[in-house]
Design a protein around this nucleic acid. Sequence first.
DNA 1: GTTAGCAGTCGGAGCGATTGAGTGCTAGCA
DNA 2: TGCTAGCACTCAATCGCTCCGACTGCTAAC
Lengths: 348, 348
Amino acid sequence: MSKELSERKKKILHALVDLYIATGQPVSSADIQKGYMSDVSSATIRAELSALEALGYVDQPHTSAGRVPLKPAYQLYVGDIEHMGAGALTDAETAFIRSRFADKLSEVRDISKRAAEIISDVTNYTSFFVSLRGGSVVIDEIKLVPLKAGKVLVLIVTDEGIIADKTITVSEGVRHEYIESATRMLNNVFAGRTIGELEGMDLDSELNAETDSFRDIFDAVLAIIQTYMAEHGDDVVVEGALKMLDYPEYNNVEDAKNFLAVISDHDSVSELLAEAEDSIEFSVRIGKEDSGVDKCAIITASYKVGDEVVGRAGVIGPERMDYKKVIGVLEYMKKALGAVLDDDKDKD
Amino acid sequence: MSKELSERKKKILHALVDLYIATGQPVSSADIQKGYMSDVSSATIRAELSALEALGYVDQPHTSAGRVPLKPAYQLYVGDIEHMGAGALTDAETAFIRSRFADKLSEVRDISKRAAEIISDVTNYTSFFVSLRGGSVVIDEIKLVPLKAGKVLVLIVTDEGIIADKTITVSEGVRHEYIESATRMLNNVFAGRTIGELEGMDLDSELNAETDSFRDIFDAVLAIIQTYMAEHGDDVVVEGALKMLDYPEYNNVEDAKNFLAVISDHDSVSELLAEAEDSIEFSVRIGKEDSGVDKCAIITASYKVGDEVVGRAGVIGPERMDYKKVIGVLEYMKKALGAVLDDDKDKD
DNA sequence: GTTAGCAGTCGGAGCGATTGAGTGCTAGCA
DNA sequence: TGCTAGCACTCAATCGCTCCGACTGCTAAC
């Protein structure tokens, strides 16, 4: 792979991957000649293929079979696509996408879910969407709301909305002044900080004689934030997990099970996406041997609002997947999502 | 099936199901004789089997094969088990269950999830757990909490906790008196009612000239409740969905896919469980032809706190599943869950 | 460097023989 | 009348075999 391939070799390789993606069958020299290179004979193509095999780009399942692309071939192919521009979507497809985004979705989670659905439906592959709000949520304000029976509802208001599902019981009863000073204390400590910051901090040091009397409330608030962190670290949505089973690559139960196990575990999905490098917009990885999703390719794209990456979408499919289409869809989603998110911003 | 089977036929049938559950292979007359009826010859058993086949209890995949139980056979078998008492769990199993319930779980959802996990892990089948809090949640109180910038947080306090994920914007600003009268109005209408009641009611009739000025707040509250209904109607947890793929019955991708599609759709799971009759404690259904989960048996159990059914657990597995064990586990869970829930009640 | 032509390879489909598990039947026995 | 021993029969599954055809690799000629 040190040397550049000749133009003809590249052309043959591209044709081979194209055909293999379309049919899933080993590609013969005659196939390539018929569809792509009627100017030379199949024998010539055979000779080239033989060379490509030696270079590790293609493989032969057995002596009398056609050639099958290997990882380097896919990589070259994907590179070509990114150069040449992605495949355009059909009108029906763009219409479909727009219609699915037509209803107003307010929750971030709903948008992620819808986006993942759309991607999966249009591409017919398994898709996932991760909203990266992790540590960057800013705590605006903490409110304590007295309820009946010595209970206090803790409200944590952030720029992303409210984290408020915890009632705590206070020993002191619900004296008004007590609640007020507790609220002051909590806001001193927490307000204006991001959740990410809190994680690394030594919070005990912030406590002093005065605040120490609110110790239990303080601990409760901290617990809520930590729970929130754990649950919402990265919000992962997976759609169309079962679609993978339609492809012959996963037509045996063992592999299918493996795949589903990985894909249903949100942590591993998050990890898969995290490996995408930040610097590039599209990242295609093919055949991760470890991690149970070998025989797969993963294409990811990052979505930004302003300068900040707010989400990352991905498609996972068989190595021989329709890269053009998938990249096209992810590309188009960038526009569509941008519109939805901006809309959402305006509403606030 | 009109006539009672002879004791010997029953015994043979029971043996046959036992063996079939253990091996998954068609059972021969010799097998039955060896393990269960050394007092008569295989020829006699063959004659009985032949009769049972005519009665529709068993089937022969082909002329020279053993017999396989049909639905009626399973039903008889399950009836026997329920009579005779379920299989006792091993010490290791009960210890495992207790240890998994050892950590304090406060959220209803966490408990459901844990329970489903335990059931699935001990039985090695797919399990689900539905918390039926649906319409019976009582609204205790509605609170409006003013936030910065003309926004108001709506809090709906119920006996099950708080539904509070909605901020609304009020045109009037956040004048204290306005908020107070709105709160009064809302509590007049909603407090003390269950969510289920609200659904059937003509709420507009409750509005009068006075309340009409709070129309937007009123509508917002209603919307929140309706959203809650839709999302929390029945809280369904499914665990170990992939375990089904270990059983040869689902060793082909087509069936596996079908099964997973049903099981991942919480609505259909909810439906499956809803079909369990309320009157009986254990409900076993075998081979629902429609609904994609044919070739399956479903065992459900209801769990009560006091007199109220709070949840329903189920196990779904191949028809030839280890009924004794599953029923034993569900039975034991009744005790274990009872303890956890009571504990939880005490804490409140 | 390219091509036509041909021999060689190998997977897969199709076919028949063989095996063996398990039955149904029948004649004889208690 | 009910049970059993024994035997003939059936049929899925397995194996081995051949045949077919889709490809390739090679070689000799252009």
